[in-house]
């Protein structure tokens, strides 16, 4: 068996994945803490519940497979966001994604229809129609509360670029929602 590396977080031991020994409780806890977040991000990218669910699962599978050691909750969250982003970008890079626009539109209409305010759903539709870089930067900034510097690190862009995206995203939103 491989050599395990350990890290400690809130008194719980995190083992490096080299030996595949992260116990089920820890995995479940990480999943519970982050499933909604990862799904939400994936949906923001893919705009389709099925694909978002796939991408969410793939993200957590990556966590199992990689030798990742979460140093703290923030690291855990950021790692999952970056990984989910990469997973989604891979999905988006497939040519057949171009062919799902109709399905996507239907999915958008379905999302959140069972609850919530009409204006929230409408705003969500508008945000999700933004080009991906704008909607993801908006999501990470306004929903997850990351700064442009932090988003830049996650997405591999300069903070100036992120600020530009946020500005442009706000402008586009402004045009749409008045």
């Amino acid at each position: 068996m491989g050599t395990f590396l350990y890290s400690y977080y809130k008194g719980k031991r995190y083992k490096k994945r080299g030996g595949g020994e992260m116990d089920e409780k820890q995995i479940s806890e990480i999943y519970e803490r982050n499933a909604d977040r990862v799904y939400r991000l994936c949906f923001s990218y893919l705009k389709n519940p099925d694909d978002a669910f796939d991408a969410m699962q793939n993200t957590f599978y990556q966590m199992l497979r990689k030798d990742v050691v979460f140093e703290n909750p923030e690291h855990e969250k950021a790692w999952l966001i970056v990984t989910a982003s990469n997973v989604c970008k891979n999905v988006l890079s497939h040519w057949w994604r171009k062919r799902v626009s109709i399905e996507e539109r239907d999915s958008l209409k379905e999302e959140g229809k069972d609850g919530g305010r009409q204006e929230d759903r409408e705003l969500l539709m508008v945000v999700l129609k933004l080009p991906v870089k704008y909607r993801i930067s908006i999501y990470l900034h306004y929903y997850e509360g990351y700064t442009s510097v932090e988003i830049g690190k996650m997405l591999g862009k300069s903070d100036a670029t992120i600020r530009g995206w946020l500005k442009k995203g706000r402008e586009l939103l402004g045009k749409e929602i008045g």
Partner: peptide
Amino acid sequence: DIRNAFGQICLDNERKMLGQRNLL
């Protein structure tokens, strides 16, 4: 507003459970 909007995106319990089962 954006928090409320993104809050509309929810992972339903059925899928959440399924995802957890698959992961474990």
